[in-house]
Amino acid sequence: MLNKVILIGRLTRDPEPRYTTSGVAVTKFNMAVDRPFANKQGEREVDFIDIVTWQKLAEACANHLVKGQLVAVEGRMQIQSYEDKQGIKRKAVDVIAETVKFLSKPKNKDSADSYTGEINFSGDDSEVPF
């Protein structure tokens, strides 16, 4: 079986870093990704995709990514089922990133202190709580 996702898009907001109760870094951000075709009106539609990063990758994303920045993400899809406050069953779809490549420099930071490059998650995921 294979669960592999590769996306290129722009961040729709600044990343949201936090730490789990056991001290593991986790950062979430949302990407706008163009669909590869136009609709009937000739316009390209966009999908908004939630990305989750863990550990060192999470820290790097939190420290160096900003809204509007172009990134490439490679990872896997994760679907979680839950019930909302009204008791309605819902599903949440996230991409758990293993690699994030920064394809552009942030527009609102000095290029001298911004990171551009690729960061791979290659650590032990025994600490990742999922």
Rank of each mutant, 00 (worst) to 15 (best):
Leu2Trp: 00
Ile6Tyr: 09
Ile8Leu: 09
Arg10Ile: 05
Arg10Leu: 08
Arg13Glu: 08
Arg13Asp: 11
Pro15Ala: 13
Arg18Phe: 02
Arg18Trp: 13
Ser22Pro: 04
Gly23Cys: 04
Val24Gly: 07
Ala25Met: 02
Ala25Ser: 13
Ala25Ile: 08
Val26His: 00
Thr27Cys: 06
Lys28Asp: 14
Arg35Met: 12
Pro36Gly: 09
Phe37Glu: 08
Ala38Met: 11
Ala38Thr: 15
Asn39Met: 02
Asn39Val: 09
Asn39Gly: 14
Glu45Leu: 07
Asp47Val: 08
Asp47Met: 00
Asp47Thr: 06
Phe48Lys: 12
Ile49Ser: 10
Asp50Phe: 04
Thr53Glu: 02
Thr53Leu: 07
Gln55Lys: 12
Lys56Asn: 15
Leu57Met: 09
Ala58Lys: 06
Asn63His: 06
His64Tyr: 12
Lys67Gly: 11
Leu70Met: 05
Val71Ala: 04
Ala72Asp: 07
Gly75Tyr: 05
Ser81Tyr: 03
Lys85Met: 08
Gln86Ala: 14
Gln86Asn: 15
Lys89Trp: 12
Lys89Asn: 11
Ile96Met: 05
Ala97His: 04
Ala97Phe: 07
Glu98Ala: 13
Lys101His: 13
Phe102Trp: 13
Ser104Phe: 10
Lys105Ala: 11
Pro106Arg: 01
Pro106Ser: 04
Lys107Tyr: 14
Asn108Pro: 10
Asp113Pro: 02
Glu118Asn: 09
Phe121Leu: 13
Gly123Arg: 06
Asp124Leu: 11
Asp124Ser: 07
Asp125Phe: 12
Val128Cys: 04
Pro129Ala: 06
Pro129Glu: 00
Pro129Gly: 03
